[in-house]
Simulated scan of single mutants.
Amino acid sequence: MLPWIQLDRATIPGDGGELRLKQRGSEFSIMLGSTELMNSRLSGSEEALATLCCERISGRKGASILIGGLGMGFTLRAALGGLPDDARVTVAELVPAVVDWARGPMSDLHKGTLDDPRVGIEIGDVGALIRSRKNAYDAILLDVDNGPDGLTRASNDGLYNHSGLRAAQSALRANGVLAVWSSAPDSAFTRRLRGVGFATDEVNVRANGERGGARHVLWMATKR
C-alpha cells in the first residue's frame, strides 16, 4: 500500500489547532491532530447536503446561496450542479490555505468550481458574515467543523446556539433554508432549531452515498 505523504499544514485562526493535508496516490485527507476531518473517497453526505437544499429552493430566480466551509469542494460542486445560471454562491472559508489547496494539489478534485462565474470566495468567519447580512440568502449551508458538536474552534458553537440560529434566520429570505451537516445526531440541536422557529427536517445519510459508509445527519430547516 502506498504511504501517506504530508503536503502542507495550516493553522486555524482562533487557536483552533492545525490542519494537515495528506495524500496517498489519488486520495487526499485533511487531518486535525489524529482526527480525519475529510477524505476524498467519502463525499456522499456533503453532496446530499447541497442536493437536498437546492431541491427546496428550486425555481427561485437569482437565488443567493452561502456555503460555510470549502473543505474538499463536494458541497460546492453539488450545489453548482443543482443551481441555474443566474444563481450566486458565496463560499466562506476561514483558513486561506484550504483555498490554496483547492487551486493547487487538489485542483483535479475541485474540477474548476472556484472559477465558475457564479462563485465568490470570502476568506473569514462564516458566522461573522451571517451576522452582517439581513434577508440576503435563499439558503445557508453549513459544512463547518464536525457539525453542532464541533472539534476545531469553540467559537463555532456560536453558529449553532440560539443566538447563531437567530442570526441565520435573519440572514435568510422568506422561506429560506438553513442546511446543516453533522457527523452525528444531536437532539438538542433539533430542539434549538425548532425553538427559534425553523420548520425542521432531520435526514440520515451515508458518508459514501449509496455505497454506504458512516452515518451522518443533515438538518433542512426552513424559515417560516
Rank of each mutant, 00 (worst) to 15 (best):
N204Q: 10
R215V: 07
P117W: 11
R194P: 05
Y160I: 10
L151D: 11
G209S: 06
E210Q: 13
D115F: 11
G209M: 00
N208F: 09
D157A: 07
A174G: 06
V180A: 00
S155N: 05
Y137I: 02
I121W: 03
G209T: 02
L129N: 03
D125V: 02
P185F: 11
L178T: 13
I140A: 02
A174K: 06
A136G: 03
L142R: 01
L114I: 08
R131I: 06
L172E: 11
H162F: 14
L141V: 04
A199H: 09
G124H: 05
A207S: 15
A128F: 09
G213E: 01
R133S: 06
D143G: 04
T113S: 14
H162P: 11
W181D: 03
D143A: 09
V177D: 08
S187P: 05
D186P: 02
A199G: 07
L151I: 04
G197W: 09
D149W: 08
Y137N: 04
S163G: 15
L193N: 03
N135I: 11
R131G: 09
R215L: 14
L141M: 15
P148Y: 07
S170E: 12
D138T: 15
A179S: 09
S183R: 12
G112A: 15
E210D: 10
A184Y: 15
R192C: 06
P117L: 09
N204D: 13
V196C: 13
D143P: 11
I130D: 01
A207F: 03
Q169V: 05
H162T: 15
A188R: 12
G120H: 05
N175Q: 13
T152D: 11
P185G: 11
S170V: 14
G209L: 01
A199Y: 13
G124K: 06
G150P: 15
S182Y: 02
T190D: 15
A154P: 13
D149A: 13
G124M: 08
L172S: 10
N204I: 14
A199P: 04
S132Q: 14
R173L: 09
V177K: 05
R118V: 07
L142S: 01
S132N: 08
G120M: 10
S163P: 04
S132P: 01
S187F: 10
R166A: 09
T152F: 06
I123D: 04
A154K: 12
Y160G: 00
V205T: 09
L165Y: 02
R118A: 10
A139F: 12
N156F: 07
N135F: 08
I140H: 05
T152E: 12
S187E: 12
V180S: 02
D143S: 10
R133I: 05
V119K: 10
A168H: 00
L159N: 06
F198L: 03
A214W: 06
A154Y: 14
A136V: 07
A171Y: 06
D157M: 02
A168L: 03
D116I: 05
R118Y: 09
L114A: 04
A171H: 08
V203G: 02
A174R: 12
A154N: 12
N146M: 08
G150W: 15
L178G: 03
S132F: 08
K134N: 15
A184T: 11
V180G: 00
V180R: 00
R206T: 01
L172N: 10
P117V: 15
R166N: 08
